[in-house]
């Protein structure tokens, strides 16, 4: 088992190293420089490039960057937030994206699980069809459509909730973005839960339990939910990663100072350090989530690690 974990860990570290290298080279290939202010003359621009050490060869900069990265220094922003350490920028935004993302995941999961089990227990009936129609809509319609609809009706027309995110009122102003983001989660979880619950209900041990005269509620709580939850948790983990990294459009609609907006701005502005750090962070979150899942699979199902030998 230790050997298995060690192997997965090494693979993750190599993956992250390759990602940073590729990001670095890609940024090098991007046209333009971070200093696109048309008020500056060529000489003034070149002076800025020299001052930030961007005139050095790319590989020299790459290893310098790696060395600083190990010291916890991810560089400063060149133009999005001039001279601010990239970590400071991420530190102020990541918690907001995380809070909204995790809230959306929890809200969506609770409703999704309820809908999924409801549909499974009424398989083929009106409730099942209705639940599945709702979930298909939830999956196929992008979250920003819900965000626009919510902000129009909830914020503008009926004035129930604030239209824009406001630090003076963070709880109430988060309700609409959380709801908009939770709909897709709800739909995915509902579909997945229903399918899992239906297959569990058709399994021999549930049929046997039912034949022994166990009540529906005992069956649901003791066997069906417990056995169909494991695969659902796997899906939830990957959904969480998506939500943590922020939703650009939803953030823009509700003016949320999240991490999605930071990444898109950094790419268009050629703010190298911000793009590389965020790319590294996103990749890191994915790699860690996959690593945890791989290790859990290895523990739960020995065939996974034995099969790799």
């Amino acid at each position: 088992m230790r050997k298995y974990i060690f192997k997965k860990l090494m693979l993750s570290i190599v993956t992250l190293f390759v990602i940073v290298l590729v990001l670095f080279l890609l940024m090098e290939l991007m046209p333009g420089s971070p200093f696109n202010n048309d008020k500056l003359s060529d000489e003034q621009r070149e002076a800025l490039i020299r001052a930030y050490g961007l005139d050095k060869p790319v590989m020299v900069r790459f290893f310098l960057y790696l060395r600083n990265m190990f010291k916890g220094d991810f560089g400063v922003s060149y133009n999005l937030s001039i001279n601010t350490p990239v970590l400071t920028m991420i530190r102020s935004r990541l918690p907001i994206s995380m809070r909204i993302g995790v809230s959306a995941l929890l809200l969506g999961s609770v409703i999704g699980l309820a809908i999924g089990f409801l549909a499974a227990f009424h398989q083929g009936k009106a409730a099942d069809i209705l639940c599945m129609v709702v979930s298909v809509i939830g999956i196929s319609v992008p979250s920003y459509i819900f965000a626009i609809a919510l902000s129009y009706y909830g914020g503008f027309r009926f004035k129930w909730l604030p239209l824009l995110y406001d630090f003076r009122n963070p709880v109430v102003s988060s309700i609409m973005p959380v709801t908009a983001l939770s709909i897709a989660v709800m739909a995915v979880i509902a579909r997945f839960t229903r399918d899992e619950a239906v297959s569990v209900m058709k399994s021999d041990y549930v049929m046997f339990a039912r034949s022994q005269g166990l009540s529906d509620s005992t069956l649901l709580f003791r066997y069906v939910i417990r056995n169909s939850l494991m695969p659902v948790i796997t899906v939830m983990t990957m959904l969480l990663v998506g939500l943590l990294t922020g939703s650009l459009v939803t953030e823009q609609i509700f003016a949320i100072p999240g991490i999605g907006f930071l990444l898109s701005s950094a790419i268009t502005a050629n703010d190298y350090n911000v793009v590389i750090t965020l790319g590294f962070l996103y990749a890191g979150i994915y790699v860690v989530a996959r690593l945890i899942l791989d290790i859990l699979y290895g523990i739960i199902d020995p065939r996974v690690r034995l099969g790799e030998k």
Partner: peptide, 21 residues
Amino acid sequence: LLLCLLILLLTGCDTQGRIAM
């Protein structure tokens, strides 16, 4: 427990208080 966690997350960062907008 899940619901409590949800409420906690929503209210967790509400330290600024509501200033009269």
